[in-house]
């Protein structure tokens, strides 16, 4: 029992830490209606890594990571700047287009790199069991710094989030918190996806924020509860995966995802009754 706890401590801790920062971003992302941005960003980062590999650098080298960051940040800058005044194309559609192009190009490149298609599979799954204490510490420090920066500018970012529809009218100089938001988000995604896999990051972003959004309404409470729910879901998922002997990432995803759907349906039932009585 003791050995198990020692073995499982780093993955559990890394999930709890990521749940905090991802829960914060999740609330913003839900309010902005750009749900799939994380999957698109992760795909762009993977494309950057593949281009690095194609240029002949080793997989975990500085150069490859640098190319990956540059790619991600460029695309996010582009994304935050694309604002047609009367938005005929929803922003989610633009995300879909980015995703599609990045994945299409990655597939073309995969033919050129030995083991290229393996690489595409690897980005999808990830494996949190192999996370080391060093990586956990590294992530904690990075997220603490980003968290502090976000906390300082939280009011301005929230302002832009809640006024998304009119953000296009503002001059570029007033939209710098948006840039800050997207760039830090890109860094977090590039850091977390190789450890946890696209789907675990995606569900930690969306599901806790969705549950919190359904249950409480004030902004601070939503962020607080997102973290709690994300952390609880991770702990439950990992212990369940251990008991049933299934992979841990998928277990967390299924637990958090299914609870969101169940809570949504419960809310539908609960709220319907008083409405009918009024009629």
């Amino acid at each position: 029992m003791h050995e198990n706890i020692v073995f499982l401590a780093p993955p559990v801790l890394s999930c709890i830490i990521s749940a905090g920062i991802l829960g914060y971003y999740g609330n913003h992302i839900l309010s902005r209606g750009i749900i799939f941005i994380d999957i698109a960003v992760a795909q762009v980062a993977a494309l950057g890594t593949m281009i690095g590999l194609l240029l002949g650098y080793a997989e975990e080298s500085m150069n490859v990571q640098l190319i990956s960051y540059v790619f991600t940040i460029l695309v996010l800058l582009l994304f935050s700047l694309i604002r047609v005044r009367k938005q005929r194309l929803p922003r989610e559609a633009i995300i879909g287009i980015f995703y599609c192009i990045a994945l299409g190009m990655a597939l073309l490149l995969a033919e050129k790199i030995p083991g290229g298609s393996n690489f595409i599979t690897k980005t999808i799954t990830g494996n949190i069991l192999w996370v080391t204490w060093g990586k956990v510490l590294h992530c904690t420090i990075l997220f603490a710094v980003i968290g502090t920066v976000l906390f300082i500018f939280e009011k301005r970012i929230r302002n832009l989030t809640l006024n998304q529809d009119r953000a296009g009218e503002k001059p570029l100089s007033e939209r710098w918190p948006d840039l800050l938001f997207y760039v830090t988000f890109g860094i977090v995604i590039v850091k977390t996806v190789p450890i946890q896999g696209i789907f675990l990051v995606f569900i930690l972003l969306i599901a806790p924020a969705a549950i919190a959004g359904l249950l409480v309404s004030s902004w601070q409470k939503r962020i607080f509860w997102s973290w709690i729910i994300g952390a609880a879901g991770s702990v439950m998922g990992i212990s369940l995966s251990f008991m049933l002997n299934i992979s841990n990432g998928p277990a967390i995803v299924c637990i958090l995802g299914l609870s969101t759907l169940i809570i949504a349906f419960l809310k539908l039932l609960m709220k319907k009754r008083p409405a009918k009585e009024k009629l």
Binding site: L30, I35, F36, F202, I203, I206, L214, G257, L261
Partner: peptide
């Protein structure tokens, strides 16, 4: 209160 796209995303992940 959450967008349908979020539900779609969650079903996709599951």
């Amino acid at each position: 209160t959450i967008p349908l796209e979020a539900i779609i995303g969650i079903t996709y992940a599951i």
